[in-house]
Design a protein around this nucleic acid. Structure first.
Lengths: 211, 211, 211, 211
DNA sequence: AGATAAACGAGACGGTACGTCACGTCTTAGG
DNA sequence: CCTAAGACGTGACGTACCGTCTCGTTTATCT
């Protein structure tokens, strides 16, 4: 529950007790931080593992030992930043307004994107996830766990109450909720104002309303 | 009116009559075609101008002479494919159903994406547009002309008739309409069935309905 | 006799009367001048026909029409400069001292090399002549006519007078006379002082002396 | 004492113990060999680092890591060939005839030039040394060590014995000795017969004789 | 005077090579 | 056995030149 999400490679359960030193936490953090900076400064296509290694004072060997590819590293670096700002309030038990509960699903990312170079870095990471098979799966796993499943719970509950149409589709719902963010952020390079979250959630819920 | 959109460089009106050879149309087409194939086979990060040049039997100098960067070439290559399937019926004068008129804005891309390697190629081109400043502007210019402005006309008309809420926002509207496609296509790598268009348009119009 | 040496292409005798404009003298001169500058600024390996064309405001076509290669152009450009400073006094009839007559064979080049960027330009031209078959023949033809044959006359005369050994060898003689210049100029990049000519000639004549 | 001359980079004394792999000897040799072949086949202006890399199965990066430029590589490749044929007998202590001792200074190069494609390769290397600042210095350093200094010893000794003039000049002497070779080899592209060495040395010594 | 033809400037073209950067793998020495 | 350092073969980058070609203009001679 309080287990670290990243790096997931470090917690492979079948791992028999090994001799010698374990994975260096300092090195891992330095690499992730350098990768985040690299993404925000050079974008996805300009992302250089050499540069990350140099800036993190790590060897390339170390990077390739723990991450499958530059894309996986990029996604890890960005998702790691979300851990801090995640879900200040319990998602699945709170009796709060449905609007707030849905908004809580997108808020962490919107927040991350508004801080510092977040927009550039996140754009890079999402491009990496789109461009690369493995990184895409990491991203989709995260997305499923943190967005899709919680949203399904919320919507199922609302459907029972008759607040949304009975033939609701979780795919279309997530697309309506998340797609616009991506479009604005990635393609249009536009700002994401504070009010955006509220209006977006309202629109999505309306689209899903009965009749 | 029936003027070609690409290459835009060829129709600069201010260009005084030049001496010497003109831009080779054969070469241009070969490069665009090879770039499209390259995108679909190697994605955006794996896109190699060397390979495009070799496959198009063109020189790299020729490519860089007419396109600012690999990203610009990628976007051109993908957008060029849309020209063929565009707007079989007049968009702004047809008295057709509003659903059909909105659907006509997204259909060309959905169609392009469903044919052959379209999904891979388009994914690459959109990543290029997101990754690169110049390519992004080309894409956004196309998007504005072909999607945003027509949609604005349609929605303004609907607003007058009271069919959509009075405080409609063109940005949110385009995001709701286009974002989900992108999300499904690019991030989720999912298929885009025939029925998708209808359900998406319906949802968007519902989200924009009054009250 | 007073016929121009350059461009030799212009005086092909078999040329039947042609229609249209003749070779442009202005263009020829501009190209030769630009080539000379180019050699002195970029050396032989850095010699660029494109740059010569641009600086001479000539088209590359024009250059390739009149010169077989960059090397031939380089040699022409350097040899052309010698025409001006050549042999103010008749070589083969003057009753002057033999030392002066031999010195007169090397003086023009030494002079050319001491003026302005002459050393750099000449180095380039000689490298071109050494590197390229055709340019080498042009150079060797010039060398034979301007140095070897006159030297042979002088030495034959001296041999008759008993001033040099009877089994003198024109090849060794030219090599002893010209090689040191080249060595100093090209390989050692050293200066060629005023006194050099006299000491060199003296040494060569001594090497050829009887016994 | 028996230390290798090339690569000089490998023996920098100030180099503190480094971590990581060392310079690959196999790669170095392959590159030098390929460069020698390249010179003999394409001359100096046609020298292609790409081709050398390909033929040596080495990367261009590796070449540029250890050599400053194509010219430096060329000079190294040619000089490396001399190491094998050098000075079978001690130069400065042998009581041999002065003619033989002087001849020994030029023999290695003459020998190298007569074997296989030696003439072409050496021509290329000498042009490289003439064309390029850095390569020229490498060549001149070699020349000074292997030719000029030994010659100075010999001549000083001869001067003491009164066999050559008292005001002998080491520069003029080396030029008289080496220049003719270069002239014949490089500029005239002529052969260098066995007897050449003897006649050349004799001429030079005669030029330096007293009176 | 008009037609013909050659030379010219400009510059696009398919190529080759440049020198640099990045990839992912491998080698060494140190902790 | 992990780590930093970094050399290695591979290959792409974006630029510069190569020598050929295609334009449209200008100039000289021949009908």
């Amino acid at each position: 529950m309080s287990e670290q999400d990243l790096p997931p490679e470090a917690v492979e359960e079948g791992e028999k007790r090994r001799v010698g030193p374990r994975r260096s936490e300092a090195s891992t953090n330095a690499v992730l931080h350098a990768a985040y900076i690299e993404l925000s400064e050079h974008g996805w296509r300009g992302f250089s593992v050499d540069r990350v290694a140099k800036n993190a004072r790590a060897s390339k060997q170390t990077i390739y030992r723990w991450w499958k590819s530059a894309a996986c590293l990029s996604v890890d670096a960005a998702l790691g930043r979300l851990a801090a700002v995640r879900t200040p309030v319990g998602v699945d038990s709170a009796p709060a307004d449905v609007r707030d509960r849905v908004a809580a699903l997108i808020e962490p990312m919107l927040l991350a994107v508004r801080t510092g170079d977040g927009a550039h870095a996140w754009r890079g990471a999402l491009l990496a996830a789109a461009d690369d098979q493995d990184a895409g799966e990491t991203f989709r796993a995260w997305f499923s766990e943190k967005v899709k499943i919680p949203l399904r719970h919320i919507l199922a509950e609302q459907a029972l109450k008759g607040a949304i149409r009975r033939d609701w589709d979780i795919d279309l719902a997530t697309e309506l909720l998340f797609g616009p963010i991506w479009h604005r952020l990635i393609a249009m390079r536009g700002p994401v104002p504070e009010s955006y979250s509220r209006r977006l959630v309202e629109s999505v819920l309306k689209a899903l309303a009965p009749n």
